[in-house]
Nucleic acid binder design. Structure first.
Lengths: 200, 200
DNA sequence: CCTACCGATCGGTAGG
DNA sequence: CCTACCGATCGGTAGG
């Protein structure tokens, strides 16, 4: 089905997501595609460049979906809501691919690995900048621990591929909005109507 | 150092956490311990039972730390805060082990795998029950999507081993309290002082 | 895309 | 805990 290179990328994404990069053999990828192992090498250079292509194009998808939204001329809370929704949309397109992008990159080596680490960093910085902007704008609590707030945001969105089902009840927009609700209400200026204050 | 079995478990935990179960070879574990590969088998049965021991005892640690707290005679929001703190405490003891417990269990097979899946489920149910109780008690918004709220909670706590450093600035208690702040303020009854309502 | 195969490495064992 | 080794499987290649 479709062009062979695409079938290989698809099968590899599925398997890397399920059992990880070292847990996947070229013979399993070949079997899923419907050829023998040696035949794969007419279309790809190596197992590692296969992983690199999946991870790199995956991060680019997140970047080009969230980047423009993060740059909108809107208050930080609005931008974060839209960014979370955009992120969840990309997850929803292909949760398995997202798992590979955010977990399997560590098996890359040398220059490709350094490049991917820099790209991941750039992506996380989109969120870090919005959190910082929110505090400066006075939208968020000025007592906010920015690093911890960022990690809570990243934790919530990075967990979605583990449970989100494209065929499930909730749409990507609904999930993104609800996650944004949960995250933002913890960050806004003077809320805490009946919250016990934290001891730190 | 210490008893050989313990050294093996420690080295395996470190390596399984860094490069995953299939990415770790018995020869690497042996090298970290300071023996040759064959010598490991005087102390362990197989690579897989080594993983099983780490995962099973790890889940038990989380269960025995969070279980009693979840059963306290307190409102759900208080119990969730204490549960999050207890969870972060166990993460802080050994973040690497936590990564193995929550990610590498999928490489177990047969009956051990089924047992571990059931244990994980039991653990997640502690949090699911507290979320449900909070809605019934009227502590949380009755419009709350319980499944999504649960996933946001699990996402936030399950992300901590990826970034928490036991030698960093924030203590486990501080981190747990802040995460609880963020999560609970999104779940409480009629907050949203200036929140844009979600469209779903 | 297949046949046939390579050197290397894997988890694990026998015997001491 | 070491020496020495096993059968199986790995990623990848040559030649067609």
């Amino acid at each position: 089905m479709a062009r062979p290179k695409e079938s290989i990328l698809e099968a590899a994404t599925q398997l890397f997501g399920e059992v990880g990069y070292p847990g996947t053999t070229m013979r399993e990828i070949a079997k899923a595609v419907g050829v023998l192992a040696g035949s794969l090498y007419a279309h790809i250079d190596s197992k590692e460049t296969l992983l690199l292509e999946i991870v790199e194009s995956g991060i680019e998808r997140f970047m080009s979906a969230v980047g423009p939204v993060a740059a909108l001329a809107e208050p930080a809370d609005v931008r974060i809501r839209e960014a979370v929704k955009a992120h969840v949309h990309v997850v929803a397109e292909n949760p398995q691919r997202t798992l590979v992008v955010f977990h399997q990159w560590r098996f890359l080596t040398g220059a490709p690995r350094r490049r991917v680490v820099a790209m991941r960093r750039e992506y996380e910085d989109l969120f870090a900048d919005m959190v910082r902007a929110g505090v400066q704008e006075g939208v968020f609590n000025d007592q906010l621990d920015e690093r911890l707030a960022l990690m809570t945001v990243l934790g919530a969105v990075n967990w979605t591929p583990e449970w989100f089902s494209p065929t499930g009840r909730a749409t990507a927009d609904e999930v993104g909005n609800r996650i944004a609700d949960a995250l933002l209400s913890g960050m806004r200026r003077r809320p805490r109507r009946r919250a016990r204050p934290s001891r730190s």
